[in-house]
Write a protein that binds this DNA or RNA. Structure first.
Lengths: 194, 194
DNA sequence: GTCTATAACGAGATAGAC
DNA sequence: GTCTATCTCGTTATAGAC
């Protein structure tokens, strides 16, 4: 048994990388297997071997994205920081996506929600639910230490934060640069402080 | 010369009605001329007579939607109401769209922004800019009367409101009912009151 | 002026070669 | 196991009939 010191770029991984960027940039309905195939220099049916349907590809995208995202949240929750700093780092995760000229994967899928197969729908909802739970916990910690002011239920406060960040991100992408997002997130966070 | 007492449902108007619902429900990239044709019982090329390209149809959709929307804003601004009531009515406009199981037309187009032809892009940006201006004026009126608390620049405060409503709407559509939107908008407005 | 027949192309997916 | 050749269908758009 060998141990992989570094993750090898598998073909499936390459496909997911390209597809992820295309979805985050253009949306799930606005890219095709042909786009991925052209970029990787393979034929379309080769992609179908790795992901038999577009739905399967979509599910894999959400799974990988979620795994990565919540691994980052774990790191934030593990570090020795106060709640406001944790929220700030949460906002920074979104901002980094925007700087790459992308939209949150599950955010853009939420916009296309009505057109998604049901397996992808539940995966998208799951992403947001996990975000809510995580953020509500951080807010609760902040309230208990007097560093955050938010009224119960804190799950609703968490949802407001998520909705605002997703919306600000989406509309900022229709403008140039992250300034619009920064202004919104700064005001949003200011409203959470004593 | 005759005067139209009531607007007649023209063929072009019928097409716009169906297309508008499809875009607000599924997005601009996820509907086709075939969908409209089937619903109206005509052939696809018949649609091309009225709107030669999908881009032309998209432009017409934004133009009509904007006209209707800003006419409503004019009414709100004309009525003898205080700023908080005007903001509440502004929120109610969004809520009504959500109750129809739709997304704001320009909101969903913002999500698809990178895939839109440039004529539609500028129309979408224009919609948001006009909204910002209108809402910033209402907020300024409220601040002057001591009914609203928001820090300068009020254009940024207006943007935060718009971003939040659009985001809350988008994510609420991935859940059932308007409760999630209501909770977010209530907290949003509460943050604007003294 | 309004619509039908048809084109030209790209989509996602299958069958089968190696 | 991995990929190429191919299929079928749906897409937007044009040409031309009435």
């Amino acid at each position: 048994m060998t141990i992989q010191a570094q993750p090898i770029a598998t073909r499936a991984g390459e496909i997911l990388d390209v597809a992820e960027r295309l979805v985050q940039t253009r949306g799930f309905n606005a890219f095709s297997y042909a786009d991925i195939a052209a970029e990787l220099g393979v034929t379309k049916p080769a992609l179908h071997y790795h992901f038999r349907t577009k739905e399967a590809l979509g599910e894999a995208l959400i799974a990988r994205y979620s795994e990565r995202f919540f691994r980052e949240l774990d790191q934030i929750a593990t570090a020795d920081e106060a709640a406001p700093a944790r929220v700030a780092r949460y906002v920074e995760l979104y901002r980094a996506v925007l700087l790459a000229n992308r939209m949150c994967l599950c955010g853009i899928l939420a916009a296309e929600y009505q057109t998604l197969p049901s397996s992808m729908r539940s995966a998208v909802r799951g992403f947001f639910e996990r975000n809510e739970t995580w953020l509500a916990n951080v807010l609760r910690q902040g309230v208990e230490h007097g560093e955050v002011t938010a009224s119960e239920p804190l799950e609703d406060a968490a949802r407001l934060v998520i909705d605002t960040l997703e919306g600000a991100m989406m509309i900022a992408r229709a403008h140039d640069g992250p300034e619009r997002f920064d202004s919104a997130s700064t005001r949003l966070i200011a409203g959470l402080l004593p």
